[in-house]
């Protein structure tokens, strides 16, 4: 029985710098490092491929600098890819390489198909807009024009992420880190996206707030059936959220498997080091 992925990425490459004769040839490139010692070009993502299936959470782990966030930014069109393909199998865009679409089309995908939660809420929220205004911004971008319906949607979402309603008109800059993160999640969910990206969403939050945010993500997945890609360097987060996990090192995917298999029977030397250093 063949199952269709909702998001398919093939050979995503992202480099910073133009490369030189030494590093342009992939075979000659040193694999231990992801940058060229001669011209300094950084190969942040090297031939990353993945399939995301409907309703699943795909975890991506790796140390800082391994290319996790860069990959996410490329997928969300925050940064242009050097080469590669991505396909979204949801509605009218089937079979089109979304990296090659016009900026308008890409914005359409961001507004209708994607939700994004950044590690730093400053990237995802307008700190001096009200919380509900932040959500409205995304709703307007997705084509809503009816103020009262947007307000009720916004309030419902804020309630869902446990932001007290009397604070919905308040600016996120007054909120605690955990609350800002929850407003960001509400904003990301407002256009009812089939795909949600979460980039280190719990990093920097204290443990009880972290638990709160993780429970919320798990609940959203269960109730809304959204497919998610969760990037984290924290194996505990991945263990709790992800069905399948990919391990990245120096911009390449070195191992992928069922999350419990990655944790209990890691194959690659780096994954073993990562798992065995778990306290």
């Amino acid at each position: 029985m063949h199952e269709e992925p909702i998001l398919q990425v093939r050979n995503l490459n992202k480099q910073f710098g133009n490369g030189c004769t030494h590093c342009r040839n992939k075979v000659d490139r040193q694999l231990e490092k992801n940058y060229c010692p001669i011209c300094g070009t950084v190969y942040a993502c090297q031939d990353v491929s993945l399939d995301l299936f409907p309703g699943e959470i795909l975890g991506i782990v790796g140390e800082s600098g391994s290319g996790k966030s860069t990959m996410m930014q490329c997928l969300y069109f925050d940064a242009p890819v050097t080469s590669g393909e991505a396909f979204i199998y949801n509605g009218e865009l089937n079979g089109l390489n979304v990296f090659q679409l016009s900026p308008q089309k890409q914005r359409y995908i961001r507004n209708h198909k994607y939700g994004m939660v950044y590690q730093n809420p400053v990237n995802g929220l307008k700190m001096n807009f009200s919380s509900i205004g932040n959500i409205a911004e995304k709703l307007i971008a997705a084509g809503n024009r009816h103020v009262s319906s947007m307000e009720s949607t916004g309030n419902k979402l804020l309630e869902h992420v446990q932001i007290p309603l009397f604070r919905s008109k308040e600016e996120p800059q007054n909120f605690s880190g955990g609350m800002q993160q929850r407003v960001q999640i509400a904003k990301a969910l407002s256009n009812n996206p089939p795909i949600l990206f979460l980039d280190e969403v719990t990093t920097g939050l204290d443990l009880s707030v972290q638990a709160n945010v993780l429970d919320l993500i798990k609940q959203i997945q269960r109730e809304w059936g959204i497919s998610m890609i969760v990037v984290s360097h924290d194996l505990a987060v991945i263990r709790m959220l992800a069905d399948r996990t990919m391990v990245m090192l120096n911009g390449s995917v070195i191992e992928e498997g069922l999350t419990d298999q990655i944790l209990e029977d890691p194959q690659h030397a780096y994954t073993q080091r990562l798992v065995y250093s778990l306290l």
């Binding site: 498997g257 069922l258 419990d260 298999q261 209990e264 029977d265 194959q267």
Partner: peptide, 9 residues
């Protein structure tokens, strides 16, 4: 057992 369940590869 763990291999049947694929916790082990």
């Amino acid at each position: 057992l763990k291999s049947i369940y694929r916790t082990y590869r």
